[in-house]
Amino acid sequence: MSLEFSEQAKAKIEALRERYPIAQPVVIPALHLAQAEFGHLSDEAIQLVARTLELPYAHVFGVVTFYTMFRREPAGTNVLRVCTNVSCMLRGAYDVLASIEKASGLKAGESDDDFHIVEEECIAACANAPAIVCGTKYFLDVEPDQAEDILDDLRKRPRPESEVL
């Protein structure tokens, strides 16, 4: 069965089309919406975006595979983006990542229902390194021994990226 956008998403896409002289610029916002609605960008989800914007499937597929936030596989509710770039590395980011991995039982790149762990490049929180971002929530000046607390915090109040569209 082919996928369909919710009425809300359809309205959002229609409103966005008004903001550009052509339909193609809506492809990235539409992919964000599709990922939020379906959890990941399956072949069917990519087909839906292509059909909605009257773009070739190959074009949309090419966009999906270029950008790191788009995923072709399902992922846990909370995407923890743990920065390990230089500013964070200098203040112990690899120890933080290791403790997050230990506490969650997941390696970077892996998922369970609750979490998806990403080793992220610089997230523009360098003055509060090491830093983690999960949806709208930043965890700043993180110490390795805070890993359990961070995961608990997110279990209680999940921060799915789909909150922001």
Binding site: N85, V86, S87, E121, C122, A124, A125, C126, A127
Partner: peptide, 11 residues
């Protein structure tokens, strides 16, 4: 699109 490592002002 602030992403240059070490830069955290535009955000």
């Amino acid at each position: 699109d602030e992403s240059e490592p070490g830069t955290c002002k535009d955000r």
